[in-house]
Computed example of a mutant assay.
Amino acid sequence: MSVPRPAGPSVSLVLRVVPLYPLSPRRAGSLVHRNLLVARRNWVVYVSGFSEPFFYLLSIGVGIGGLVGEVVTDGGTALSYQEFVAPALLASAAMNGAVYDAVFNLYFKLRYAKLYDAVLATPVSAADAAVGETVWALLRGAVYSAAFLLVMLALGLVGSWWAVLALPAAVLIGFAFAAVGLAASTFLRGWQDFEFVQVAVLPLFLFSTTFYPLSAYPRPLQLLVECTPLYHGIELVRGVVTGDVRWALLGSAAYLLVMGVVGLAIGARRLERLLLR
């Protein structure tokens, strides 16, 4: 009986350049389960994340909405201001939940708790850790988004059955920002660098057509906004919630998917470099 030979140098070399090699969904899932057990002990911290988008909706969407009146979207659909703002806040909730979990929590685990020093002593690889942490962060963003979607439904701000796709869209947003947040956390040198995270996230929240349509900007700024990831996330969620479904939404989904894959690949390589050097 012949004994199978190990993979030759060429096969090994090809596998080594794959960004997420070696990866096991089961091992990555064990890290997600570990985070779930920890979250059960600190549930107050996670519940607090529901409040921010809800208060924004009440204060800006409902309060100021009475003064603004109708808003015409870039697709030509006339919406009340509450209907215009609510999907954008849902997308922002997915972004914030994913980014802050991926950046703040992972940085603490990496630099202070030294969690991954113990994790990588097990069969879990750096790619497994990167995928596990990204999945956990996007799940947190998805939970926030699901709760916010229920609030929108209760307030009558869901205008189409296409809204059933709003939660998958929010998960895609969470994936993109969680992956990029994970990669960014590996470049942070200290707690003072978290200011750069806020400098990146806050302008995205304020200017990615969250509170007014793209047509409010001069054309050069429109081109800049169209390049930002939250703009594509808001377009995707707003389109399905209001029923303004266009082929361009597939482009927005592809943008977020590519962003997530690239961020995850960079994050996995950076984790491996930091932990196994």
Rank of each mutant, 00 (worst) to 15 (best):
V3N: 07
P4R: 03
A7W: 10
A7R: 13
P9L: 11
P9R: 11
S10I: 14
S12T: 15
V14S: 06
P19Y: 10
L20K: 08
P22G: 14
L23K: 06
P25N: 04
L31M: 09
V32M: 13
N35K: 07
L36D: 02
L37W: 09
L37Y: 09
R41W: 02
V44N: 00
Y46S: 09
S48E: 05
G49D: 08
F50M: 11
F55P: 00
L58G: 00
S59W: 10
I60S: 03
E70V: 05
V71Q: 01
V72M: 12
D74T: 12
T77M: 10
A78T: 15
L79A: 00
S80P: 02
E83H: 13
A86F: 10
M95E: 05
D101N: 14
A102C: 04
N105E: 13
L106V: 14
R111S: 14
R111I: 13
A113K: 10
A118D: 11
A126N: 11
V135H: 01
W136D: 12
L138Y: 10
L139M: 14
A142N: 04
V143Q: 07
S145C: 03
L155F: 13
G156K: 05
L157R: 04
L157F: 07
S160A: 14
L167A: 10
P168Q: 01
L172Y: 09
I173L: 03
I173P: 03
G181C: 04
A184Y: 13
S185F: 02
L188C: 05
G190D: 11
Q192H: 08
Q192D: 15
D193W: 05
F196M: 12
L204N: 04
F205Q: 11
F211G: 01
S215L: 03
R219I: 08
R219Y: 12
R219T: 14
P220T: 05
C227L: 15
C227F: 13
C227N: 10
L230C: 02
V240W: 08
V245G: 08
W247T: 14
A248R: 15
L249H: 06
A254E: 01
L257Y: 02
M259E: 06
V261H: 03
G263P: 06
G263K: 03
A265G: 15
A268E: 07
L271P: 08
L276G: 01
